[in-house]
Design a protein around this nucleic acid. Sequence first.
DNA 1: CTATTTGCAAACCCTTTGCAAAAAT
DNA 2: ATTTTTGCAAAGGGTTTGCAAATAG
Lengths: 135, 135
Amino acid sequence: MNFLTVLKSSGLTATPQRVAVLKELGKKTHPTMEEIYNGIREENPTISLATVYKNVHVLKENGMVIEINIPNGKMRYDYLAKPHIHIVCKSCSYIEDMDYDENLFKYQNNLEKSKNIVLDRLDVIATVDNCKMCK
Amino acid sequence: MNFLTVLKSSGLTATPQRVAVLKELGKKTHPTMEEIYNGIREENPTISLATVYKNVHVLKENGMVIEINIPNGKMRYDYLAKPHIHIVCKSCSYIEDMDYDENLFKYQNNLEKSKNIVLDRLDVIATVDNCKMCK
DNA sequence: CTATTTGCAAACCCTTTGCAAAAAT
DNA sequence: ATTTTTGCAAAGGGTTTGCAAATAG
């Protein structure tokens, strides 16, 4: 997967910093801004945090990245996700991805029909008190 | 509904400020901290914003209030809600409540069974680009 | 050559905290 | 009398912004 090409074909300016942000988002799952920043700095120590913020937002506005709003936590970002839900552990903040299932699609369809609206997104965050990743 | 009694029967200290916060949350739907604060100040001009924050968190920890994490917006709070989802307009931030339906209950049950977990909450936020409240 | 992006530092906004005085039980 | 809460002001933490220099197209 060529991140530079992905950017150009979306009509975005392909600076090394922007490529690095996209690459970093393709690497980790659900990183915070700080994690993206620190990840990039290993190879590109001169990038600034402000540039990471600006680029993540550009990618978000262009539909390449989604924002995950975790209760009691920092904002997290996800690259090119097909619709899925997030299971968040309240103890350790570990995030697990889960696919949509038939019932969720039905729910969305019923909602759109009954209210005569088109949903932009349907974000589902399930929280659990503990998970298998907890110490 | 007697808010003072509600507090005492939960074992909480019933200060006038805490009663006022609970009363305000019972009045408005999905207020922000600032809106709760300003609402209370009409009748109780000496309350401080810090006190509102502290009390909302006490109420949240005692299960009387839930937190609604809207994309690109301020945190909002909701009094004693039976499970429902929120439809948020991206243009004007208007929030509409919707009941769970059968499919959503099925989704939650399947999820809990298939992963052998018990969910603390299942938060669903649907976003739309425009709504009937938009100017 | 023009438009966009970068990086820095400062500003911003919401939220939390420390602490002494006040109030609740 | 003891414990909890209040209110203030200061600090904190994440995010955004203004702007001149650098880079992309």
